[in-house]
Design a protein around this nucleic acid. Structure first.
Lengths: 129, 129, 129, 129
DNA sequence: GTGGTCTAGACCACC
DNA sequence: GTGGTCTAGACCACC
């Protein structure tokens, strides 16, 4: 299911968050679908339960999942109205990454193609219910 | 010259790297232009010399600047032919960020506008010699 | 009658307690009025009977309702003379919340308006017999 | 400095957050003042460092303090512009608490006095630099 | 020395 | 069985 790099500089809990976010964004994990329990994932990945829990807690804080004590953790329905701060932060991240991409020679049409590709992958994920 | 945020969670040396990268990407620092010495910058920013040193070392490792023993550090000429690995990594980063942006509701035209804006800023920087 | 949020972090039994307290405080449930039986409410809300039981038990402990074996649970008549400990505790809670409210910029007139609004809602509830 | 109740239902990290918030709100801890280090407080309170860190992390998330790895944790300058969500949540909390206070017989003038008292305590704290 | 991450476990409330 | 809290400890990057 997941592949984690324990040697990476990036903390394990962040790697986990990225993987799960990706699966949500690409529609592989559907809204209200149950995620593996903290213990199960801990055993599967041979990662400490506390580390899994930290990832889940942060994902909940960011609005990607919701957790219920005694029940489990579930994929949150996608946000309808992102906050102004969230939009501003994303804009900043896009501007910075574009600056680097242009430096490497990426053209407007390269960017458009990649955006289109991402859109299509998301559509595929969502329609494959 | 620089403004560092000591309250930020981001390490000082990373903030410094980002600022210098930005000035290179936007053409404010030109190829082969000399950067301030570690000592000068350390005094100007009231930041530990080791921290400046680390930022310069990392920037050199990433190919943004080069150092000449006894002379100083200089902006590297922009790479004409980025490696295949670099292009693949950038493509990956763009795909991931687009996935998040789409999740937040950014449209194709939003993306195009931001790309255009970045392009123009870079042009302005380079032509202002 | 009730709407429970299964996605909330707040335990179901606490949500239930809050709803019932609210209905008592706003006069929607009158003194000595009978509450639905544990079984009935359990079926209506599709919530485990143990959970309903726990909410009723806690509400009784706090003095909001009373139970008669074999008859059912009833709204307690509003306390005419709250204990000194209760008053002191409420005073403490108000002081703490005001400190936070002031920190967020709530003015004296904001506070007065909210108090007035609460008063009017309670009056409306009680007079609608 | 602090008194924690290990037997309480309220988690230790929340008790700690409340105490620190209180000291910030009443001006006992001033903006940019350094908090005791995680290790120091852990030893003083004989509470696990992880628990202290959890309290600090949450306080940072709520905007009361800021932490710098390698430096320490500090009181954040008071927020100038609280978010709309924050204001809405506080309004809700005030309405609920007023409903309970009215039930216990607190009058408008009681509420006003308590608000006034809180204001004065904050002023005293801030001016006693 | 500082905060941040992580392990290996225990115990708790909730359902 | 589930997530949430907590301990006792180790190691890391940063300054």
């Amino acid at each position: 299911m997941f592949e984690l790099d324990v040697r990476s500089r990036k903390p394990i809990y962040e790697q986990l968050m990225d993987k799960i976010k990706e699966m949500i964004l690409y529609g592989i994990l559907k809204p209200d679908e149950q995620l593996p329990s903290v213990r199960t994932l801990s055993a599967q990945l041979t990662v400490n339960p506390n580390t899994i829990q930290k990832a889940y807690r942060e994902l909940e804080r960011e609005g990607y999942i919701y957790s219920q004590a005694g029940k489990g953790s579930f994929v949150a329905p996608s946000q309808q109205q992102p906050g102004a701060a969230q939009l501003a932060e994303m804009k900043e991240r896009l501007l910075k990454l574009f600056a680097e991409a242009i430096y490497l020679g990426f053209t407007k049409s390269d960017i458009e193609k990649l955006y289109q590709q991402t859109m299509e992958e998301q559509e595929r994920g969502k329609s494959s219910d």
